[in-house]
Design a protein around this nucleic acid. Structure first.
Lengths: 222, 222
DNA sequence: ATATAATTAAAACGTACGTTTGACAAAAAG
DNA sequence: CTTTTTGTCAAACGTACGTTTTAATTATAT
């Protein structure tokens, strides 16, 4: 009897040596990330993915179980390290200064998602576009992506509340939502001719972060 | 021989009296606007639309020619009056004050799309959501929507350039792009519990516009 | 009334979708 | 070696898609 891999607990490296199946799984994730970033979830078909990834159609269901769980896997591969870095940077500025400035908080929030595109040379803009696309997908896709980032959202909302005591919670809530909206737009337009983030060199990213922080912190304080 | 209606020039009211076909066409447009606003273009099927509109499947192709041209029709039904009002308000503030403030310009830009949701009681939030969804669709759908609004984008970019002479054109370009991104987000989240625009009463819209103008004009000036 | 055009209706078109199956090869375990 | 697990592959599953066709129905005009 053949048990499907995505229902297994852990394989613990006692399985196949690491050439075939790992390549297949990673290739599917890579191509899915790029295509969904370009065309959206329902605009991307599994046949598009397996064709470009040069793997068999059934491999998707063998490794992930369904199209939706494949999407979830792509999201989490990105969200987990980004959220961890956001929370770490927030912790850092809250230790350095007992009361960090709005600029400090926004920088800690924006840096990880924008810098994460630097990870792999060839995935820079792809990753940015995918993250942007996620939050604009129809339900239930959007919720899957939103949940993966929700841990950071609440932490930064609390931090902003402590920095801007005169503003109501609901006011800060829609303002942080608009901060995310602009971040998402910057990510989605990354690489376009007139975008804030035209290419993914480290110095361009730093400049974009700094300009975006200035643009947004002004509005946060009003 | 039967000539299809969407290829005709004009019917000039010498055709059928105005009960059946006009209702069918309007019903399709109304339902398409709502469903595409909720589920996106490729997430909405013609069978979903005709089922809720209670019209025959073939009616879509008879009246519009294709799914994409139906989308174009929905976009233009919204965009034409919005853009006209934006340009009219811009003209007005540029006549009143020879050099209008950033706040004046942004208000002229934001008021029409946000107020347009007031047109019909039952379409308020639907229309807002559709307009928001449009700009986040994959190509070529996004371009169709963008073109319909492009006339106002360039006019407001010029106006902002005259108000903020110290900023470069490309800087103003990505800033206006982020203004649109926040407008879009406000529209898409309209009606949600913690959104800026929670319900569509006239006074709520005015308050939302004023808060959004404050939030954004601060960043525009930095 | 009759002819003509406009609109609706039901059914089918071919294609593509996500998913499942079952046979088969490769690796790991006994 | 034999057995079992793990992964790949081609093919098919049933369903739903956008679109087209053909006929019937309804309104307009002569």
């Amino acid at each position: 009897m053949t048990l499907r891999k995505h229902t297994q607990t852990v394989s613990l490296s006692k399985t196949m040596s690491n050439t075939a199946s790992i390549d297949t799984k990673a290739q599917i994730l890579n191509v899915a990330e790029r295509l969904i970033g370009e065309k959206g979830f329902s605009g991307t078909t599994l046949r598009n993915i397996v064709s470009e990834a040069e793997v068999n159609l059934a491999a998707v269901h063998y490794h992930f179980g369904s199209k939706e769980e494949l999407f979830r896997a792509v999201v989490e591969r990105i969200a987990v390290p980004v959220v961890a870095r956001q929370l770490s940077l927030l912790d850092q500025v809250q230790t350095d200064a007992k009361q960090p400035s709005v600029e400090d908080i926004l920088t800690a929030f924006l840096k990880p998602p924008l810098e994460f595109v630097l990870g792999d040379e060839q995935f820079r803009l792809i990753r940015a576009q995918f993250m942007g696309r996620c939050r604009t997908e129809p339900e239930p896709i959007q919720s899957i992506a939103q949940q993966a980032f929700s841990a950071s959202t609440t932490a930064f909302l609390d931090a902003l509340q402590r920095a801007l005591l005169d503003q109501s919670r609901s006011q800060l809530q829609w303002k942080l939502d608009l901060v995310i909206a602009t971040l998402v737009r910057v990510q989605m337009e990354a690489g376009q001719p007139h975008a804030l983030l035209r290419n993914a060199q480290p110095e361009d990213i730093q400049r974009a972060i700094s300009e975006l922080v200035m643009f947004l912190s002004a509005g946060m304080k009003t």
